[in-house]
Design a protein around this nucleic acid. Structure first.
Lengths: 206, 206
DNA sequence: ATTTGACCGATTTTGTAAAAAGGTCAGTTT
DNA sequence: AAACTGACCTTTTTACAAAATCGGTCAAAT
């Protein structure tokens, strides 16, 4: 059974809380963000937060879910645009890098998994991986039905595609020289494009 | 100018020192290995080590260089075996995973780069990357001369191939559950094979 | 139903003294 | 002279306790 809010909560109030928390988490991470700070930002007492949420992790989880949903909604638009697979994947990786700039917590998830081996991070990471994999799966499924690509194990290929995107991003995140100079996203995007081209070539109709 | 030994040193003595240091570094890493321990293992005083080496990093560097050379010598054998590119790359990734089990320091280099951002690690990592890239370059060059693959930018492709191998390995190293159970190498090898197949398909003659 | 200040146990932070580290050198051994 | 060492110096790491802070609870107030 998942942890949820303790009681019913007005949507606009929930949104305000998650909004404030999102900014704090983005800047300082889960560990270095305190409940008092979130409460202060909202202009309420810490105890009030515990009236709505059972613990800090629950708020963090909700923030992450929100970012995940935002991300997936955006990406599903690309799938729905119904272009050929080459253009769809290009659009996908273009938007993926751009959107991670906004959704900082989601973008740093892999990095957090790596540096602190909290089960919470691991489970969030795994869930996000599965979601993204499903989207890529749809893209490949569509392409296969249209005879744009050869017959492949879609589950295997989509899983590997997402996996490589993640590993490339993790590695790029580590090179702080690039990260601080803002060059990271540019380099990472090039790597994405290169990999996508290889990937496409390997599944294209012979 | 590179730091070297202070004075000429008998080869068998140098080898013994590096041998002892290699074992310590492999078990405890650079930071948690002390000069006194290395000296004790050798049955000499700490000051004796400083008679031959200017500092600890220099010993570590030499150990890493030795492992790099061992690795490259082994891998170059595969290139020299002169099989078709498909078999050569398969042999390469097979031996790569296996050989990292022996050369523990080299195998953990990427991991160390990630967790401590020491310039020493970064430079060692970059050098190793360049070396490995050169080997893959040779493989691709041979294949192209034999008309086994289509015309590609060999420098770009070999660089990316090595880059992906590294990122996949880094990620696998992080999942300690697998690492501790010894399943890591098995899973990683599968990822390598999958990627190599994609890679090969993308450069094969049409 | 909602909010809060006071409060609790556990964790983190901080300050610091002792220990151990890297590294040097005058001098001894071979 | 080349090889080696114990004593020594400076910096870093460790160990540990006091203080502060944090996550979380609850009776009382609104």
């Amino acid at each position: 059974m998942e942890k949820e809010e303790k009681i019913a909560i007005a949507p606009e109030k929930l949104e305000k809380i998650l909004d404030v928390a999102q900014k704090r988490f983005a800047r300082f991470g889960l560990a270095k963000t305190t409940m008092s700070e979130i409460a202060d930002d909202l202009g309420v007492s810490k105890a009030s937060l515990y009236y709505y949420f059972p613990d800090k992790e629950c708020i963090f989880k909700k923030v992450m879910m929100k970012e995940q949903l935002d991300f997936c909604r955006q990406m599903k638009k690309i799938v729905a645009s119904d272009k050929n697979i080459k253009q769809t994947l290009k659009d996908y990786i273009e938007n993926r890098t751009n959107y991670f700039k906004t959704l900082i917590n989601l973008g740093h998830l892999n990095y957090d998994i790596f540096h602190e081996q909290k089960p919470l991070y691991a489970s969030l990471g795994k869930e996000f991986y599965e979601r993204e994999k499903e989207i890529i799966k749809t893209i490949l499924q569509n392409a296969m039905e249209r005879n744009e690509i050869r017959k492949i194990d879609i589950d295997e290929y989509s899983g590997f595609f997402v996996h490589v995107l993640r590993t490339l991003r993790l590695y790029a995140l580590a090179r702080k020289e690039l990260w601080e100079q803002g060059l990271m996203n540019k380099e990472l995007k090039q790597e994405y494009i290169f990999f996508t081209n290889i990937f496409l070539k390997s599944i294209e109709k012979i």
